[in-house]
Write a protein that binds this DNA or RNA. Sequence first.
RNA 1: GGGUGCAUAGCUCAGCGGUAGAGCACUCGCCUUACAAGCGAGGGGUCACUGGUUCGAACCCAGUUGCGCCCACCA
Length: 852
Amino acid sequence: MATIPETPSLAGLEAKWAERWHDQRSYRFDRSKSREAIYAIDTPPPTISGSLHLGTAFGYIQVDAIARFQRMCGREVFYPMGWDDNGLPTERRVQNHYGVRCDPTVPYDPDLVVTEVAKGDKAQRPISRPNFIDLCQRLTSEFEEAFEQQWRTMGLSVDWDLTYATINERSRRVSQLAFLRNLRRGEAYAAEGPTMWDVDFQTAVAQAEFEDREVNGAFHRLAFPAVAGGPPVEIETTRPELLVSCVALVTHPDDDRYKHLVGTMVITPLFGVEVPVHAHPLAEPDKGTGVAMICTFGDTTDVVWWRQLGLPLRSVIQRDGRFQAETPAWLTGAGTDAYAELAGKTSQQARRAIAELLRESGALIGEPRPTKQQVKFFEKGDRPLEIVTSRQWYIRNGARDDKLRADLLAAGRELDWHPDYMRVRYEHWVEGLNTDWLISRQRYFGVPFPVWYKIADSGDISWDEVITAEDASLPVDPQADAPPGYDESQRGKPGGFTGDPDIMDTWATSSLTPQITSGWIDDPDLHARIYPFDLRPQGPEIIRTWLFSTLLRAHLEDGVLPWKHATINGWILDPDRKKMSKSKDNVLTPMPLVEEFGSDGLRHWACRAAPGTDTAADRAQMRVGRRLAVKVLNASKFVLGLGSEPGTTADVTEPVDRAMLAQLADVVDDATEAFRNYEYHRALERAETFFWKFCDDYVELVKVRAYHGGDEGRSAAAALSIALSVLLRLFAPVLPFVTEEVWSWWQEGSVHRAQWPASSEFADAISDADPAVLDVAGAVLGEVRKAKSAQKRSQRHEVTLLRVQDEPKRLAVLQLAETDLRHAGVVTELVFAEGSEQQVLVDLAPDAPVPA
RNA sequence: GGGUGCAUAGCUCAGCGGUAGAGCACUCGCCUUACAAGCGAGGGGUCACUGGUUCGAACCCAGUUGCGCCCACCA
């Protein structure tokens, strides 16, 4: 047992205890426990970057408080930590960090040397795919170490032997096996079709990764001559450059203005292509002229029309976002000349060019009218998404399967959400799904699809002849490994094979975090002990991605819910209540705040916020936490400095002491109930309010008696030490450092492995206790303090006469605390008088003569 | 446009049927043998607005306004 320092301090507590917890494996998961005795958390793997964001820390600290509570309740907590190092963010970071880019045609260079490049240096040298992946792994492992250090400093009670990375071998194996099983059951499939495409990253993008942004556009009004003569048909478009891809016009079937046109042919301006006019209910009479141009493809509605009306495919935009160089086959004559002006241009460039051509030709009616429009972007992208035709892998998600959709909605209702209203976001997402989940990405750093394709004797790839990897061989890299029954010499040869070039979307891996961490494939014993998990904590913005996709994979694989509870944390706002974001340059990182307020101060701030509630990054609130931690140190020093050995409940005989413990019993019951319901903030609030009252009123009342010893003094000392033990444990989940420090002064072992307090521990010290004693005495003491303050006297100033008038019943209660009240108020004479209402009269002694 | 959450002291937030709360900030005091990085006291609020339910509403219901977020919206 350590000695109590003369002046206790928070300085150095993080370093001291984080190291000791690590060395002693304080939070090691004991896998010998049975399922009922285990609490399993499906920890979110934070995206690896240079430093943690304060918002990330905010959410993880709340989860840690829950984990610590469950551990103290006697459950073995399975609390892993993952690193999301998979996918695009890492690729982009490697590109910028080392000034390289992946070029699969470059051969592997085993001696490649790269160095960090200066910021803003945009030059990127091409390197091979294996070299590129090496760099991704090198960079992420550096960041992982830094992250772990920061988390430990903030006191996360993670078992650091249970870390995982979304790109490591186990994750690749689990991802590939789950995919193959989806494929066998018909839940995964490949399809060729129009796909939302990012022209910069040159990859397909899934519905969940779209976001709308407002951009400046312009309506161009165009005239289409009718083949049969008569007035031309006018349309409005914001994408005139797609005129070359126009395959039809469309109008609403009930629009009387245009009914006569349906079934007729018109001619595209400039390009001279004859296209039909169709009727379709998705055409909106009040948009533009009421007649829309259908192109392959300008937007998702075009895709619907194209499918339902059986229109031809006339795409010209390539995967790099540029108009193809060759003149499209459907153009002749003047159309060929017009196209020459567009070939090789980007959409933006083509738009300007075509507007000029249209103006010259007279097909443009009036000038383009500027407008603001909402356009779909890849959330990480810089240019609008285009729609290109490509072959992609999908997993069924209920978008086109009513039974599956209904099952997933039912699963969402079965899950316990904290707060409950977050469930609605999930339901809306599932109800609004309109495409299956696109899981393939045309990128490099990620989990490859474990499939190959046969190459026909003609040399053509037979995309329908899929060769799948054997389960036991996983993980495989089809770019490096030959499929079963083939050898490497047959790669790319007629009669041979070719590997699938794509990788899986990062969510296709992270949707399997429960399977990855639980040992689904390679550790069935562990899997049985922790799966399904108890808790999935996460942010609100990834309900539609991570939460939904995890639930989907578990449903498809096992037909079960992967966890019982989901907690959704709130956002961190800057002090002006604006959402923090990098673009606003108002992002705070946690470590400087830890420096200033201590980890306990930061944790206190995070745990004062209700689950799911957006919270301002308020330094004043963190200072409050720091103050509380300091107070815990000092109050503990006082209690433990009373000298005697810790008292027992039998020593607590005085009414004031019993009243305090009776009130504490209620606090313990309430805090326990709150924590069980994931309301860590209520538990903290209850404990904290009690603690300050305990310090200000109870300790002040009994201090002198405790010093004096005897039976009465022993009663106070015992009550104080019982209360301290309980309070330290109540605070332990939120203030792990200061509580552990104090615990180490007088107890064996860690407070974080101590039993969560129960009021039954001191039940025999509070039987027949009247909790009002403390309140009544505290109120009178308050009157004494007020009188001294009003007369600008020290609180140690003598009260020559204290006269309390009150109802007999309250007087009787007050008399139980008479001696303590005399000591605390420095009262010489105390008089009680019965009366109908409370009146307190305080006579202060005249100022003492100044000693000569 | 649909959904959802929020609106309580100058600020940040608890409270969610039973006499309006905390911290910060502000004012005035106090070296008081746990703590001056402390302690005591004080001022400060039609609980957004309008109706309703109730003996009683900050709290429940309906509507209104403002703010945030999610989804839809590319002619």
